[in-house]
Every structure is written in structure tokens, then in C-alpha cells.
Design a protein around this nucleic acid. Structure first.
Length: 655
RNA sequence: GCGCCCGUAGCUCAGUUGGAUAGAGCGGCUGGCUUCGAACCAGUAGGCCGGGAGUUCGAAUCUCUCCGGGCGCACCA
């Protein structure tokens, strides 16, 4: 609601400036520093002062005069040296909120048919070990961004790319086969046991260490990769077993946080369906790459550095796309994959159902052979967001340069690297985990997570720990309730805490993970926001417990009655904050920062907590005021639920 | 060496395309549960926004420069 009024005022001012002052300009709108100044502030007069050669204050006065009255606006005042402060008509504002005109959908909107598609690719964990805290940041950011876009009505497809034929999977296979002498059926037996992903976590670290101690053993990796690529033999079979089983683990881990996918494109199909062959032809044909005849890259197909770096900083460090032995690098495959996402490759995968979520929604996986079951149409996006950590910026630049070199400028423009900083471990966290740090590392502000070293916090361990901690709190407050319900509530609280923790930081901030902070349920946390929501609901529940019914707000609250109640400045400020979900969402999408929405959720919860303490609601003697306060309560509850919903955080039945 | 990111309260972080007196959480101190459940609230202390120069009516925000920290720059992904 706030946002729509804001944009309307903006449009009116822009039109007025164009018409009566002959100036084309964007109208900046901001929050007044103090709420007593008004509900919106326009500093536009300052911008115009130079062009019009007049004092800002005079311009502001003339402009307000020229604009006249605006529906929904009660007053406009000139303040300071030329601010235009706008005050809303409180009664009509509240009345339209009451009608449900909040400017935001209650949940994801069903996109219009023919609506162009946005693809968000996230998670993308190598299927060779358990997911860790860094992977969670990726998935939670991606998932939340998807929820934001879908709430705004965008048609979004979620892809989780599976690199099932890469070095990392090969290394675990090397571990099973060469270090532990296991057969594929031994591995299958291990998969049937608990926590296969944890088994692989340890094995991967052990194999990596073995390479370090015995460099000659790297030949095993080469042999394994070769067999995996060829697609037959025990090693290839084992690779498939491992990767497929780990993907199942990852999906389960992510589902605990409410994170889902639409399709899992796999590298094995990119190979078998020869996506690269098409891409290679295109690249050669359009001269995006060339065959290097000399120097260190002799015998390789390379992309010149001028393609992906500024012309002035171009040097001889070209990027190898095809190795001298004829195999294609990761970047090459990624260019092919990116082309497919835009529907530019001229090829598609086949698909089969992978897993059904509890509500029946299906995840599909790519496959190399035609299927009888009809799959949805995947790919062919207009905009593509790749949620990948910032350390891969250079490679993402090369991929985009590939598109541009092929002449797909529009798609290059619409390829967005949704980058984020890593999650590292605080020195204290390492101590908690019993990890010994080198003297050098101990002095650092944080230590990088390393799968190869087995250094990291496993996602499932962290979630278990959070649930245990929350369970203790729940049990102490609701000892009378069944352990099952207690556990369910504790789980919702734990997951809310984790999602919020990962979202409260902006994408450019390195998170130095710390158990104490992550396990906190007080202050700026997910549970704080959940708690506010639960309390709002409790008021309404209590009302009904006392034999009263929830009033028919539309019948009892006229715009005049609302205006009367909103003479209370505190109540008005609170309502204003609560009405800004649309504004916060819009800002979070345009800046690409889910953190902004998380911050708003917290501010909204704070405002409600304050409201809760300032206004006794159930005991309010005046009928009109009581009904009004009850309406405010339902409004807060609804807005809190919506905002939490976009953040992927649920609301427990009690706390 | 080159590129990207960060530097804001004791700690961890926000700061909406440059705007009015720079904000929040944690921690510290002082208060508030027989009320709609305190996972809460109110109050308080705490800042040369890393240093310097510039652009501007106006800079935490833009430019340059220096200092400090992190991450990239493979025929790995």
C-alpha cells in the first residue's frame, strides 16, 4: 500500500514538473529523518535549484502550489531549506488497508501465461560429500530470492546443477576403490546405511591428504575421470552410485529448510547429449575462440583475454576452453549450459521424475534418453540468475564474455551473477569444533571452510544442534505439551533462526560463522520475529477463548473512525511501518539484497512488540478503540506472516 | 604485479538511485512480569563513518590517493 501511494505521488510530481516547469527528472523520495516531519519527503527542489536558478525553498513552494491536491494526501509542507514533506490522509489510508489493498500478494502469484521466464540457479553442490554451512548460505539466498520474485508475480524456474562427473566425485571414488578396496556393491551397502554423505565427507578429506602425501597417486584420479567420462566400468558405476546417493542427501538437507527445486540438470547429460559439440561449433564459427599455435597454451582452443577483461587491461592471459588433449574445461561446459538456459543451444535434455515432495510437487532430473512421461518445459529463460560465490567472479565473467562473443548481447546482459561472499569460521568456532589451527591461521579474523581438509560445519549437524537448543527452550515453557509437538515447534524455531541468520548479512559481507551467534534466539533473530507473530495470534485466540468473536472490521470501522483513532501519533507510525511490506520487497528485489527484507521483518516485529506493550487490547473499555486495536493486531499478524513467508520462515503454533 | 570485496559504537552488522540531528542487535549500566506469556519492553552510556585530498548547496555514500584485512588471477571446478 505504501509503495503504491509513493509511486503515485512520484508520478504526479514528475508530470507536473514536465508540464509546468518544463523539466524532465526523476523524483527522489525518502523517509523523513524524524517522523514528526511527515510520512514522505521530497528533496526535489534541491536538485532543481541550479537549473532553475532559484532558491530551493521558492521552488518547493511553487511546486506544491502547482501540484494542487493529491487524493490520499492530507497536506504538503515546506520545511528546512526546501524539503517538501507529505502527510497522508490517515483515515482513507487505513480504510484502503482494511479493504485488503496492501499492495502485496498473500503468497506466490500464479504467473500469467506467456509471462517470460526467470531462471534462478542455486545450491550446485558437488555431489561428493555432505553439505556445509557455506552451501546453506547459497541455497538460502537463492531460495529467498526466488520467493521474492514469485511474490512479485515473476515466473521463476529453480535449477540445481549437478556436477556428477567432476574431479570431486572422482576423488571420493578413488578413495573407495584404491584406498579402501571397495566394490560398487560395497558402496551400495554403505549408501543403504545412515549418513552416507558424512562417510564421504571423511573419505574425501582422507583422499585429498593422500594425494598430498603421495603425489604419484594423482594418476588414480586421471584414470577415474577418464573412465567416468567414457561411462563404463566399475569406477564409472561407482561414481554414479556416489553422486546419485549424495544428491538425495542434499535434497533432504535442503528440504529441512523448505528449499526446493524444479529441475536438476546434470553434467553427465551435458556430456552424453554432446551439448559441448554444438557450443564448440558455434564458438569456432563466430570466431569467439581460436586455436593457439604457440606459447604456453600451444595446442589449446582459447578465448582471448580482451573478450572478458577491459581492453586496456588485456594481456596474454587468455582462457583455455579446450585443452591440448582435446577435453573441454569447466568454463567451456558452463558456456554450453548457459546457452541452454537461454534456449540458444538448439538442443534440450530429456527429463524424468526424480523425487516427489510431500505435497506432490515433482523435481525433475535430466536424462540422456527419451522418456514416455511428459515433462514440463525447462530452460528457455529470458533472465538468468546464477547464485555463485564471489570467488568465481572471474569464471562467470568468461561465461558472459562467451555469450557476447557469440553475438548474444541481450542474453549476456540478462546473465546475472548473483554473487555473495563466503562463510568462514571464526577462530572461536574452530576451537569449539576441536580443530587445531596453525599459528598463522589463529591470527586471522576468520578461516576459510575447506572440503578437502574436512574443515567446516556440516549443515545437518548445525540444524540438529539448533533444534536441540530450541527444544530445551520449548520444553521449559510448555512442559505440559506432547514431545512431538514440542519437537515440531523447536524445529520451526531452529530453521527460522538459521534462515534469518544467513539472510541478515548483505551479500558482500563475509560471514565469520560463530555458534554462539547462530544459536541465539534473542534480539535480531528469526525467533524474535516468529515470537511477535505468535503473540499477535495469541491475542486473537484469547479473545475467542473469552467468548468474544472477532469483530466484522469492515462493518464497524468507518474511515472516520479510523481517522479518529489514528490521531494517536504512535498508532499511526506503527500502522505506517506495518503497511510497508510492498515497499521493502520492491527495494530488496531492485537491489538484489534479501537482507533488506530480513531487516524490514525485524523492524516490523519490533514495531509490533512495542504496540503490544503500549496498547492493552483485550481490556480496552472503549468499543471503537478496541475494535480498531484488534484490527491493527490482525493487520500486523498478516503482514508479519507474509514477510516471514517470503523469507521462507514458518510461524509455530506457540512459542 | 593486476582485478574484485571489505574497513561505521567495546563486538557483529545496517545505512533505500548523494539529503534534515549516522542507526540496529549483542555486550555494559538502570528499571519493568498477579495484565494480551519477559524468546519481551523502556531508559542510559558508547562515533574525527580507516587517513588525506577533491567534486557538490549538501558526502558514510561519488572520484583520486595512501594505510590495513580478505578473495581471485590453472590445460581444477
Amino acid at each position: 500500500m505504501f509503495h503504491s501511494l509513493e509511486t503515485r505521488i512520484q508520478a504526479i510530481f514528475r508530470a507536473c514538473l514536465a508540464e509546468k516547469f518544463g523539466v524532465q527528472t526523476d523524483i527522489a523520495i525518502e523517509q523523513p529523518k524524524q517522523s514528526s516531519f511527515g510520512d514522505l519527503a521530497l528533496p526535489v527542489a534541491f536538485q532543481l535549484a541550479k537549473n532553475l536558478r532559484q532558491a530551493p525553498r521558492k521552488i518547493a513552494t511553487d511546486l506544491v502550489e502547482a501540484v494542487g491536491t493529491i487524493p490520499g494526501v492530507a497536506a504538503m509542507e515546506i520545511a528546512g531549506n526546501g524539503y517538501i514533506n507529505v502527510r497522508f490522509d490517515r483515515g482513507t489510508y487505513a480504510a484502503s488497508l482494511l479493504r485488503g489493498d496492501t499492495g502485496i500478494a498473500a503468497g506466490p502469484i500464479e504467473p500469467k501465461t506467456g509471462e517470460s521466464k526467470t531462471i534462478v540457479e542455486h545450491t550446485n553442490i558437488n555431489p561428493n560429500k555432505a553439505a556445509h554451512i557455506g552451501h546453506l548460505r547459497n541455497a538460502v539466498l537463492g531460495d529467498t530470492f526466488v520467493r521474492m520474485l514469485r511474490t512479485a508475480g515473476r515466473n521463476v524456474e529453480i535449477q540445481n546443477y549437478i556436477d556428477n562427473t567432476g574431479v570431486q566425485v572422482a576423488d571420493v571414488v578413488v578413495g573407495f576403490h584404491f584406498l579402501e578396496n571397495k566394490t560398487p556393491s560395497d558402496v551400495a551397502a554403505l549408501i543403504a546405511q545412515e549418513r552416507f554423505d558424512y562417510t564421504c565427507w571423511d573419505l574425501y578429506a582422507r583422499t585429498s591428504q593422500y594425494y598430498k602425501d603421495h603425489p604419484e597417486s594423482l594418476a588414480w584420479r586421471a584414470q577415474t575421470l577418464h573412465e567416468v567420462e567414457a561411462g563404463h566400468g566399475a569406477l564409472a558405476k561407482m561414481a554414479h552410485l556416489v553422486a546419485d546417493a549424495i544428491v538425495v542427501c542434499h535434497l533432504a538437507t535442503m528440504l529441512r529448510l523448505g528449499i526446493r527445486y524444479d529441475v536438476l540438470p546434470r553434467e553427465s547429460e551435458i556430456l552424453h547429449l554432446k551439448f559441448w559439440a554444438n557450443c564448440f561449433e558455434l564458438l569456432k564459427e563466430r570466431k569467439a575462440i581460436y586455436f593457439e599455435e604457440e606459447g604456453k597454451n600451444k595446442g589449446c582452443w582459447v578465448m582471448p583475454s580482451s573478450a572478458f577483461r577491459g581492453a586496456d587491461e588485456a594481456n596474454e592471459d587468455s582462457k583455455v576452453i579446450v585443452r591440448s588433449n582435446g577435453t573441454v574445461t569447466y568454463v567451456g561446459k558452463d558456456i554450453a549450459y548457459q546457452l541452454w538456459k537461454f534456449g540458444l543451444l538448439g538442443k534440450d535434455f530429456f527429463y524424468k521424475p526424480h523425487t516427489a515432495y510431500p505435497d506432490g510437487q515433482m523435481v525433475w532430473v535430466s536424462t540422456a534418453t527419451p522418456q514416455t512421461e511428459l515433462a514440463p518445459s525447462f530452460g528457455k529463460g529470458e533472465t538468468v540468475y546464477n547464485v555463485i560465490d564471489t570467488r568465481q567472479s572471474y569464471l562467470q565473467d568468461v561465461v558472459v564474455a562467451g555469450l557476447r562473443a557469440l553475438g548474444f548481447d541481450k542474453q549476456a546482459e540478462q546473465s546475472i551473477h548473483f554473487s555473495y561472499e563466503m562463510v568462514a569460521l571464526s577462530p572461536r568456532c574452530c576451537a569449539d569444533l576441536g580443530i587445531e589451527l596453525s599459528e598463522e591461521d589463529a591470527k586471522r579474523p576468520y578461516v576459510e571452510v575447506s572440503g578437502r581438509k574436512g574443515l567446516g560445519v556440516k549443515a545437518d549437524d548445525l540444524m540438529d544442534k539448533l533444534i536441540e537448543s530450541a527444544f530445551g527452550e520449548v520444553a521449559s515453557r510448555h512442559a505440559e505439551d506432547s514431545p512431538e509437538t514440542q519437537r515440531a515447534v523447536a524445529t520451526e524455531i531452529a530453521m527460522g533462526a538459521l534462515r534469518y541468520f544467513l539472510l541478515k548479512f548483505t551479500r558482500t559481507t563475509v560471514i565469520a560463522f560463530d555458534f554462539q551467534e547462530a544459536l541465539s534466539f534473542e534480539g535480531e533473530t528469526g525467533p524474535y520475529v516468529q515470537y511477535a507473530t505468535v503473540r499477535a495470534r495469541n491475542i486473537l485466540k484469547k479473545l475467542q477463548d473469552r467468548g468474544e468473536s472477532i469483530p466484522d472490521f469492515a462493518a464497524e470501522l468507518s474511515a472516520e473512525a479510523m481517522a479518529r483513532q489514528l490521531l494517536d501519533e504512535e498508532a499511526w507510525q506503527m500502522l505506517l511501518v506495518a503497511s510497508k511490506v510492498d515497499s521493502a520487497l520492491d527495494r530488496a528485489i531492485s537491489t538484489g539484497e534479501p537482507a533488506q527484507l530480513a531487516k524490514y521483518a525485524f523492524q516490523l516485529a519490533q514495531t509490533f512488540s512495542n504496540f503490544y506493550h503500549v496498547f492493552p487490547i483485550l481490556s480496552e473499555p472503549d468499543r471503537e478503540k478496541k475494535v480498531f486495536l484488534l484490527w491493527m493486531t490482525t493487520f500486523f499478524a498478516k503482514q508479519l506472516e507474509r514477510t516471514l513467508g517470503i523469507l521462507g520462515i514458518t510461524v509455530p503454533v506457540y512459542m
